[in-house]
């Protein structure tokens, strides 16, 4: 029988070994061999844990002022990182400030992925008028430089964490929507989606089974690069006085209030900026590492 012959040939050509890896585990495997990414991932995790555990780790009350101990240098008495212009402990304020700053880096991006990603997948998959309607609205938002849009929304809303969150989410939605739309419309015309349609599958099932899994990697890569932008932008809004209201700590606001003291304690004044820089740099490098690790066919 020729059929038997075909079976044996197929077997002969097969790579041996039963262990099979899926996409995400092969990504994790590649990441494991990238020391730079692993290092900065650890930095991020450490910072996140430190911020979460701020009440336990902070040596002082971040709101406790002291007229006597204003603007003390790094290493002054029991203040390892000095004190700010109201004599509050810098280390404690940096730890508490990390809560707001890191959250404002991650949360707007997550919200934008949920909203922009969904809109983009719908636009890309359904095409036609739905696509035109969604994408033209996105184009209008895209026509604003991101800082301007963030300041415009947050500024007119009157500032505060909530308005910053709304502003940053709106800033990130259009570009995420575009990435999702491009990836989806590419997938839409690929044969395996046609094959799924040919098997009589309804749209929602095709999107769930075949589209999401394939558009998630590019969306994820892009979103990871936005976290750094989000940290910089949210700290920037705070710096302009549009972030948390005092005395709550937040890196951007700390930088802004310490600005007048650069002549007295330059190093202490630079600390919140260093924190912002380290976080933004770490997220950027981890995003680069992810891009490399996820740029695999499988």
């Amino acid at each position: 029988m020729p059929a038997d012959a075909t079976i044996t040939t197929a077997q002969a050509g097969a790579p041996a070994g039963p262990a099979r890896r899926g996409y995400w585990s092969s990504v994790a495997e590649r990441l494991r061999h990238d020391p730079v990414t692993v290092f900065f991932l650890c930095v991020i995790l450490l910072a996140a844990v430190a911020a979460l555990l701020a009440p336990v780790l902070a040596p002082h009350d971040p709101y406790e002022t002291s007229m006597l101990k204003r603007l003390k240098p790094v290493g002054f008495e029991e203040h390892p990182l000095g004190t700010d212009e109201l004599g509050r402990d810098m280390l404690s304020r940096l730890l508490y400030g990390g809560r707001v700053s890191i959250m404002m880096g991650v949360l707007p991006v997550l919200l934008a992925v949920a909203i922009g990603g969904t809109l983009g997948v719908l636009a890309g998959f359904l095409g036609g008028l739905v696509n035109t309607a969604i994408m033209r609205v996105m184009d209008v938002f895209y026509a604003f430089p991101s800082v301007l849009l963030a300041v415009a929304i947050s500024g007119t809303l009157g500032g505060g964490i909530a308005s910053g969150l709304v502003a940053l989410t709106l800033v990130f939605i259009p570009s995420l929507c575009r990435v999702a739309e491009t990836a989806t419309s590419q997938i839409r015309s690929v044969d395996f989606v046609e094959a799924a349609r040919a098997s009589g599958a309804p749209t929602h099932s095709i999107i769930r089974a075949h589209v999401i899994g394939n558009v998630l990697p590019p969306i994820f890569i892009y979103a990871s690069s936005l976290v750094s932008v989000s940290i910089l932008l949210s700290a920037g809004l705070s710096f302009l006085g549009l972030g948390v209201s005092p005395p709550v700590a937040d890196w951007g606001a700390m930088l802004s209030s310490l600005r007048q003291a650069v002549y007295v304690q330059p190093l202490v004044c630079a600390l919140p900026g260093i924190a912002i820089f380290v976080m933004s740099l770490s997220f950027n490098l981890v995003s680069d590492g992810l891009r490399h690790a996820m740029d695999v066919k499988a």
């Binding site: 750094s228 910089l232 700290a235 920037g236 710096f239 930088l255 600005r259 650069v262 002549y263 330059p266 004044c269 630079a270 919140p272 900026g273 912002i276 820089f277 933004s280 740099l281 950027n284 490098l285 680069d288």
Partner: peptide, 21 residues
């Protein structure tokens, strides 16, 4: 990488400290 990661408003303050102060 540093160029896109650095908060430029902070960078401005640092430059002021070094070159102006």
């Amino acid at each position: 990488t540093v160029g896109v990661s650095v908060p430029n408003y902070w960078m401005g303050i640092v430059l002021v400290i070094v070159f102006a102060v």
